[in-house]
Amino acid sequence: KSEEHWTCVVCTLINKPSSKACDACLTSRP
């Protein structure tokens, strides 16, 4: 599942699959 985009639970930004934290608010990926 690491190839899928993911949505930040805090700010709802859709992040790149390679991101380990949100690009906007830096919250860790769930």
Rank of each mutant, 00 (worst) to 15 (best):
residue 1 K to F: 14
residue 1 K to Q: 00
residue 1 K to I: 14
residue 1 K to D: 12
residue 1 K to E: 05
residue 1 K to L: 07
residue 1 K to Y: 06
residue 1 K to C: 00
residue 2 S to G: 07
residue 2 S to L: 12
residue 2 S to E: 09
residue 2 S to N: 02
residue 2 S to P: 04
residue 2 S to C: 01
residue 3 E to Q: 08
residue 3 E to K: 06
residue 3 E to D: 08
residue 3 E to R: 04
residue 3 E to G: 07
residue 3 E to N: 03
residue 3 E to C: 05
residue 3 E to A: 09
residue 3 E to V: 07
residue 3 E to L: 06
residue 3 E to P: 04
residue 4 E to L: 06
residue 4 E to K: 10
residue 4 E to C: 05
residue 4 E to M: 13
residue 4 E to D: 11
residue 4 E to G: 05
residue 4 E to P: 09
residue 4 E to W: 03
residue 4 E to S: 09
residue 5 H to L: 06
residue 5 H to T: 11
residue 5 H to D: 05
residue 5 H to E: 05
residue 5 H to M: 14
residue 5 H to C: 03
residue 5 H to W: 00
residue 5 H to K: 06
residue 5 H to Y: 12
residue 5 H to S: 10
residue 5 H to N: 14
residue 6 W to C: 06
residue 6 W to T: 02
residue 6 W to V: 00
residue 6 W to K: 09
residue 6 W to D: 03
residue 6 W to S: 04
residue 6 W to G: 03
residue 6 W to M: 02
residue 6 W to R: 06
residue 6 W to F: 06
residue 6 W to N: 13
residue 6 W to Y: 06
residue 7 T to D: 10
residue 7 T to S: 08
residue 7 T to E: 07
residue 7 T to L: 06
residue 7 T to A: 11
residue 7 T to G: 06
residue 7 T to K: 09
residue 7 T to R: 07
residue 8 C to K: 03
residue 8 C to L: 00
residue 8 C to G: 04
residue 8 C to V: 00
residue 8 C to N: 02
residue 8 C to P: 04
residue 8 C to T: 01
residue 8 C to Y: 00
residue 9 V to L: 13
residue 9 V to Q: 12
residue 9 V to T: 15
residue 9 V to N: 12
residue 9 V to S: 11
residue 9 V to A: 15
residue 9 V to D: 07
residue 9 V to R: 10
residue 10 V to C: 04
residue 10 V to L: 03
residue 10 V to Y: 15
residue 10 V to A: 07
residue 10 V to R: 07
residue 11 C to Y: 00
residue 11 C to H: 03
residue 11 C to D: 10
residue 11 C to S: 05
residue 11 C to E: 02
residue 11 C to G: 07
residue 11 C to L: 00
residue 11 C to A: 04
residue 11 C to F: 00
residue 12 T to Q: 15
residue 12 T to I: 03
residue 12 T to E: 14
residue 12 T to R: 15
residue 12 T to D: 07
residue 12 T to C: 06
residue 12 T to Y: 14
residue 12 T to P: 12
residue 12 T to G: 14
residue 12 T to L: 12
residue 12 T to V: 03
residue 12 T to F: 05
residue 13 L to C: 13
residue 13 L to G: 15
residue 13 L to I: 11
residue 13 L to R: 13
residue 13 L to F: 09
residue 13 L to S: 11
residue 13 L to M: 15
residue 13 L to A: 15
residue 13 L to W: 09
residue 13 L to Q: 08
residue 13 L to Y: 15
residue 13 L to D: 15
residue 14 I to M: 14
residue 14 I to F: 07
residue 14 I to P: 13
residue 14 I to E: 10
residue 14 I to H: 11
residue 14 I to C: 06
residue 14 I to S: 13
residue 14 I to V: 15
residue 15 N to A: 00
residue 15 N to E: 02
residue 15 N to Y: 00
residue 15 N to K: 01
residue 15 N to I: 00
residue 15 N to V: 01
residue 15 N to Q: 06
residue 15 N to G: 03
residue 15 N to H: 05
residue 15 N to W: 00
residue 15 N to P: 02
residue 16 K to S: 09
residue 16 K to E: 04
residue 16 K to V: 06
residue 16 K to T: 10
residue 16 K to A: 06
residue 16 K to N: 05
residue 16 K to L: 07
residue 17 P to T: 13
residue 17 P to I: 15
residue 17 P to Q: 12
residue 17 P to K: 11
residue 17 P to D: 15
residue 17 P to S: 11
residue 17 P to A: 09
residue 17 P to N: 12
residue 17 P to H: 10
residue 18 S to T: 10
residue 18 S to R: 10
residue 18 S to C: 11
residue 18 S to V: 08
residue 18 S to G: 11
residue 18 S to D: 15
residue 18 S to Y: 04
residue 18 S to K: 13
residue 18 S to H: 14
residue 18 S to F: 13
residue 18 S to M: 09
residue 19 S to T: 09
residue 19 S to R: 07
residue 19 S to V: 10
residue 19 S to P: 02
residue 19 S to N: 13
residue 19 S to G: 04
residue 19 S to A: 13
residue 19 S to D: 12
residue 20 K to E: 13
residue 20 K to V: 11
residue 20 K to W: 07
residue 20 K to D: 11
residue 20 K to T: 11
residue 20 K to H: 08
residue 20 K to I: 08
residue 20 K to Q: 13
residue 21 A to C: 04
residue 21 A to V: 06
residue 21 A to S: 09
residue 21 A to F: 08
residue 21 A to N: 07
residue 21 A to E: 04
residue 21 A to Y: 04
residue 21 A to P: 02
residue 21 A to W: 07
residue 21 A to K: 10
residue 22 C to V: 00
residue 22 C to I: 01
residue 22 C to D: 01
residue 22 C to P: 02
residue 22 C to M: 03
residue 22 C to N: 03
residue 22 C to T: 00
residue 22 C to Q: 01
residue 22 C to L: 00
residue 22 C to A: 01
residue 22 C to W: 00
residue 22 C to E: 01
residue 23 D to P: 11
residue 23 D to R: 09
residue 23 D to I: 13
residue 23 D to M: 10
residue 23 D to Q: 12
residue 23 D to E: 11
residue 23 D to K: 13
residue 23 D to T: 15
residue 24 A to H: 14
residue 24 A to I: 03
residue 24 A to R: 13
residue 24 A to G: 15
residue 24 A to P: 00
residue 24 A to F: 07
residue 24 A to D: 14
residue 24 A to M: 08
residue 24 A to Q: 15
residue 25 C to Q: 01
residue 25 C to N: 02
residue 25 C to K: 01
residue 25 C to L: 00
residue 25 C to R: 01
residue 25 C to G: 01
residue 25 C to D: 01
residue 25 C to W: 01
residue 25 C to Y: 00
residue 26 L to S: 14
residue 26 L to A: 14
residue 26 L to W: 05
residue 26 L to M: 10
residue 26 L to N: 10
residue 26 L to Y: 07
residue 26 L to P: 05
residue 26 L to T: 12
residue 27 T to F: 05
residue 27 T to N: 09
residue 27 T to V: 04
residue 27 T to H: 10
residue 27 T to D: 09
residue 27 T to A: 12
residue 27 T to C: 10
residue 27 T to E: 12
residue 27 T to S: 11
residue 28 S to R: 09
residue 28 S to I: 10
residue 28 S to F: 05
residue 28 S to G: 12
residue 28 S to D: 14
residue 28 S to Y: 05
residue 28 S to E: 15
residue 28 S to K: 13
residue 28 S to N: 03
residue 28 S to L: 11
residue 28 S to P: 12
residue 28 S to Q: 14
residue 29 R to E: 06
residue 29 R to F: 02
residue 29 R to Q: 12
residue 29 R to M: 08
residue 29 R to T: 07
residue 29 R to V: 08
residue 29 R to K: 13
residue 29 R to C: 12
residue 29 R to N: 15
residue 30 P to E: 08
residue 30 P to I: 05
residue 30 P to N: 03
residue 30 P to Y: 02
residue 30 P to R: 03
residue 30 P to A: 15
residue 30 P to W: 03
residue 30 P to S: 15
